[in-house]
């Protein structure tokens, strides 16, 4: 039964599963090309000195991209469920509703987290061949909060998509937008580290948000 649920989610999202890694790869390649260009123009020594003195983020385009990935995946996964209230078909399946929803959510989270892990590796492994470990570590600490935004954005978007009433969707959108800014504040490398445990805790708690929307959907709230 879980295989069937995952199959359905895959069919819905297969375009996005191709688009997102392609987009991330393109942005990563572009970032590296830009990086190498700056190194060629300024010289590696001067470039590294600037990075150290000015705490430069080497991958600025990845600040908002993970949030976008989370929102896109959740939209593609759950908007079809809400269109014509198709979610009724999913909730009618002969499997405990909570298990169905958990499976769907874990599918999305797994996709998003896998994408992020691969991206982190793709960015930092080449970086480690070129720069000292401290630089790699600094870039990792810069990226981490932005990347944690992806599962947060996914869960918040899911919550909002499934919510049946605009009366709750609109404040939800406002609150979610504010919440996602917590993940993308401009900060020096490492400045976010005290906040990262809170961000992770928020993602864990946000996992329960969609269940409220499902409960409200089931009540037929309009």
């Amino acid at each position: 039964m879980y295989k069937a649920i995952l199959y359905k989610e895959f069919i819905k999202t297969r375009a996005v599963i191709i688009i997102l890694p392609t987009l991330f790869a393109a942005v990563a390649v572009f970032s590296f090309l830009q990086l190498f260009e700056e190194i060629r123009l300024a010289g590696k020594v001067s470039f590294l000195e600037t990075v150290i003195q000015k705490d430069t983020a080497m991958f600025p385009y990845f600040k908002h991209l993970p949030t976008f990935a989370g929102v896109l995946l959740a939209s593609v996964q759950y908007l079809p469920e809400i269109q014509y209230k198709r979610l009724k078909l999913t909730l009618h399946l002969p499997i405990k509703e909570s298990k169905t929803i958990i499976t769907m959510l874990l599918y999305g989270i797994t996709i998003v987290v896998t994408l992020l892990l691969i991206t982190i590796a793709a960015l930092l492994i080449p970086l480690a061949k070129t720069f000292p470990a401290e630089i790699v570590n600094a870039q990792f600490m810069t990226l981490i909060p932005h990347f944690i935004a992806a599962p947060a954005a996914y869960l918040l978007t899911t919550w909002i998509c499934i919510e049946p009433t605009w009366k709750f969707k609109i404040p939800g959108i406002i609150a979610a937008t504010y919440a996602l800014t917590f993940f993308t504040m401009t900060a020096k490398p490492g400045a976010y580290m005290p906040f990262v445990p809170y961000l992770i805790a928020f993602v864990v708690i946000a996992f329960c948000f969609p269940f409220l929307s499902v409960a409200r959907f089931k009540e037929g709230i309009q």
Binding site: Y84, K85, L89
Partner: peptide, 13 residues
């Protein structure tokens, strides 16, 4: 077995 109004189905299949 349930048929929803409008023959709603997972029409992306």
């Amino acid at each position: 077995g349930i048929l929803l109004e409008g023959h709603v189905q997972h029409s992306y299949f």
